[in-house]
Every structure is written in structure tokens, then in C-alpha cells.
Design a protein around this nucleic acid. Sequence first.
DNA 1: TTGCTGACTTGGC
DNA 2: AGCCAAGCCAGCA
Length: 104
Amino acid sequence: MAFRDEVYALVRRIPAGCLLTYGDVAELAGHRGAARQVGWALRALPELEIAPNEANLPWWRVVNRSGTLADFPSRNLQMEMLREERIEVDEQGRFDLQRYRWEP
DNA sequence: TTGCTGACTTGGC
DNA sequence: AGCCAAGCCAGCA
């Protein structure tokens, strides 16, 4: 099973209203410290012609360790999705990881 | 094959 | 709080 598919399998299990960091996903996939590859896997989604919503792939529930979003094309969409799931954002546009982090 | 690149993290200032 | 270097490893040229 490819690393990419391990990532997708894990992301699918994140409950609504919860968050996971790139590092968390990497460790759960058995690749501790390979956070960058998780980012790569998520970035590859549009190129794979996958419709994330229809594929039940809540990629927007993966954020970085600072509780912020990096500067990538779909970050605005991600913010919107998180807001719909009642995840609060502070004045600096950050999430409370202590509160929303998913612990399997 | 080697050598970059990168939706990241961590530890040390 | 921020900056920086090192580590990570799947693709790609």
C-alpha cells in the first residue's frame, strides 16, 4: 500500500469537528517525522481527479502544528469548511489544537 | 543513479 | 513570540 493511500485512509477516519496535524497523520501512518510527505499527498488530490467531497476525504481537517493554514490555493475553501464544522478561529486565524485535536 | 523540491516538525537560540 | 538548521521521504528531472 502506497504511503499516499495510508494517508487517505487515515484522513477519512477524522470525525467532523476534529483536527489532525500533518505530523499526526505521518505517525499514524507509521512514518514518524514524515509530515512533508503528508502535505505532498494532500496536494496531489486535485491532480488525481478525485472529488474530495464525494470520495469522503475531509482533507480540510488536516492543519499544521501552529494551528494555522499555509499559503496554498485552497486555503480559503479550507477555512470555510472548518467554519461550517463549528471550529472556532481566533483573531490571528488560528485554531485551538488542544481542543479540536483528534485522538484515535 | 543523484540531486533537488516541498499544504511540515522539532529543537535550539 | 520568532528565526534557523536539520530531519523527513515520495516524486520528478
